[in-house]
Design a protein around this nucleic acid. Structure first.
Lengths: 194, 194
DNA sequence: CGCGGGTTTGATGATGCTCAAGCCCGGTGG
DNA sequence: CCACCGGGCTTGAGCATCATCAAACCCGCG
């Protein structure tokens, strides 16, 4: 129920006084999610942005063969949303669910603009957030195009050492773009590199 | 030499008066690039953001086998930069060059913050720009993970019908993540889909 | 104690790559 | 005007990577 973590994140980029903090947090509502329950399912229309206060969520798409492809993991302190759906006001192609019991803060799409009007400083925070997410996404795209499965796995371990311990490895497989079977074979082989 | 196209792009998100427009454009310098000349090469440190006034640029990385992987095409009216290098102040992993004779407007990394201070409204413009780029990048990532080469090619044709006419197909191959040889074989086969 | 999700293992096969050669075609210099 | 050159595209044979399908296993949990 405390917005401590969220406010701390905001404070890294812009400073809000007490009153502004009040205004800001009033745009959010709290939601608890049990492990494996959905925040959204593919095809949903109404959309929020979510800040993870505790736990961990994931966003993923399901292809025509029914295979899941994980776009993002969001542990505590991260944001998650379906940007495509949010920006175009279109039904979602992504599903978002909790991979642990989690608590998130939600702001409705329709209220985001109100938030910016009330607190224009936040444009800066979310600009920087979007820019860093973009840099990450682009790097991952290049990795997907130029690295082998083993190299992508090693990268993942380096970048998310804490996640690797706490999630089933089939999720890692789905994130780096291989099947769980191939992942298993990969790991049982004599290690290549790093 | 006229900033018409750039100002028109800004005007889609925020409105600047004459004086503010002056201030804004004064941060930029003009650069002309002949076809196949570099804006940046891998390893460069100094960085700009570039707005394409005419022509077309591309950004790409080169993997350990020497293969190029195109991250972005930027025709007139688009922005291009190496976000990773820009945000981390690190040497670039990307190269950017012109695929046609082009004219670009450049703003130095060190002056971007000055620009935001002078014209805070621009945080909004660049927030929206980054968000839309993020949505695009994420969609492309999902496509890379879940679609076949043929499907990615069809997507590319749908999304960038004008580019497909004007650039060598080996660039398209590099963008969708296949070799020129495989691209050629793909196109000579009886069409699947779309 | 049995159920079920996650992981492992093996056989087979598709997708797309590598290397090498030849071709097409526009541009350049003699 | 022609001959040459070079970049891009094509074609083919062989191969690496990773997927698919099926079965068995492991182990925490109700």
């Amino acid at each position: 129920m405390s917005f401590e973590l969220l406010l701390k994140s905001i404070a890294t980029r812009v400073s809000l006084n007490e009153e502004e903090q009040q205004t800001f947090t009033s745009f959010f509502r709290v939601k608890k999610l049990k492990k494996k329950t959905f925040l959204y399912q593919e095809g949903d229309i109404q959309q929020h942005i979510a800040f993870i206060n505790s736990g961990c969520l994931r966003s993923y798409s399901i292809d025509k063969n029914g295979t899941e492809h994980i776009l993002q993991f969001a542990p505590a302190g991260w944001w998650i949303a379906d940007m495509q759906s949010l920006l175009n006001n279109a039904p979602s192609n992504l599903s978002i669910d909790a991979i642990e019991d989690s608590e998130v803060f939600l702001i409705k799409q329709s209220e985001i603009e109100d938030m910016y009007q009330a607190l224009p400083q936040l444009e800066r925070y979310f600009r920087i957030l979007a820019e860093r997410s973009l840099a990450t996404s682009q790097q991952r795209l290049i990795d997907a195009l130029s690295l082998t499965a083993v190299e992508r796995y090693n990268n993942f371990c380096k970048r998310y050492p804490s996640l690797i311990q706490s999630i089933p490895q089939k999720y890692v497989a789905s994130y780096i773009g291989i099947t769980p079977e191939f992942m298993s074979k990969m790991l049982s082989q004599p290690m290549k590199k790093g």
